[in-house]
Write a protein that binds this DNA or RNA. Structure first.
Lengths: 205, 205
DNA sequence: TAAAAAAATGACAACTTGTCATATAGAAAA
DNA sequence: TTTTCTATATGACAAGTTGTCATTTTTTTA
């Protein structure tokens, strides 16, 4: 979380820093990013940076939390369009993220994030779907989704299904960003895996 | 990959370095690890380190590749015990890994790895199950697994099922290591997710 | 035993990072 | 409008890091 001092800054100065940070996080992943580069690019003195943020993780997660919140909003709207169809919604979300990857300024930034998707980053990404502080939010999601055709007996199972869908989607995204797989191939693979999840791995005899 | 010079070293000197590295990777995750600490602990001059390894990633993956190879061997033996039952085997593997986590020297080392499980680490872990250079190995796995009761129509689907099972297992492991969840609770959660995967998310109407 | 190749060594330049004493600006009080 | 107090800005600095490379030492080869 940025310190209050940062929030008191003018929008312009805030953006100056944000842009410099995004540029650095596009160049290299978080753990290789250099605060020196960010302040040089933003043209602010070193001491000021530490007046605004704890460290580079702090500014990184400030950016990323915003990004993942946007993805979540997108997901909510996609679910509505699909009348609560969980599977169709994930396929659409997947495609939307792939398309945004092809937008000019995003490519390296997104790639650096996904190829270094560790616990903390994944948790930030996922918590906007349903966690602790957002518990009420999970209910919102739960209300939007059509669970009629889902093979579940409790809300807990619904939670685990979502968890699995998300991790499978993330894994597919990582794979795409790592191998620069064309969109249509990525879509085919992801759809195949979603189908497997739908029908189940086990064939009762 | 270590340089030839390292492999020419006596086993004792190799272990000296390996142990120092493992100690450092137990203290902090890879990206925070310091070569200075490793060489100080091993009592070798700085230049020597670079004679043996490219950088800290190099020695990290030398260790981790060995670790994940051991896990794979374990997995193979577990499958045999379970007569090729994919689901039972994953549950057993999950439990084995949890138990090894409770062994003294391992705890922090394993935790640091799983909480920073990025693409490269996951790929190293996974490749020993079935990838490119080990393609023949996937066939071995494929031969061991009992696919009679699996809901698949091709070897490709089998590959995707394995991929999903692994990523779900990893996600559960990460969760356990992050929250210090007791083994029995972890087992319950993982079993529940495996059951969901078995029966499928979609209820045909 | 002399020459050539391989390995060991540690000082060094070129970076990092986070801190802190000091300077400056802004707001509140007198 | 001064004075006082508080918040912010600043950049030099200590303490650390990394990878390199000229030299020395050891081992092989001829």
């Amino acid at each position: 979380m940025p310190k209050p001092t940062f929030l008191n800054l003018s929008k312009e100065k805030q953006e100056l820093l944000i842009n410099a940070a995004k540029k650095e996080f596009s160049r290299v992943p978080l753990h290789e990013a250099s605060i020196s580069n960010i302040i040089k690019d933003a043209g602010i003195p070193r001491g000021s940076f530490y007046q605004y943020f704890e460290d580079k993780e702090d500014i990184f997660f400030f950016l990323f939390d915003e990004d993942s919140r946007r993805v979540n909003e997108l997901f909510i709207s996609i679910i509505k369009i699909n009348n609560g169809d969980l599977f169709a919604s994930f396929v659409d979300l997947f495609k939307s993220i792939l398309i945004s990857f092809d937008e000019p300024g995003n490519r390296q930034y997104i790639k650096n994030i996904f190829l270094n998707m560790n616990y903390k980053i994944e948790k930030t990404f996922t918590k906007n779907f349903f966690e602790e502080n957002v518990k009420s939010h999970f209910s919102e999601l739960n209300g939007l989704l059509n669970s009629e055709n889902l093979n579940i007996t409790s809300e807990e199972e619904m939670f685990h299904i979502l968890k699995i869908m998300i991790v499978v989607m993330i894994q597919n995204l990582v794979h795409v960003f790592a191998t620069e797989l064309p969109i249509h191939e990525a879509m085919a693979t992801f759809s195949l895996e979603i189908d497997l999840l739908k029908k189940g791995f086990y064939k009762g005899t």
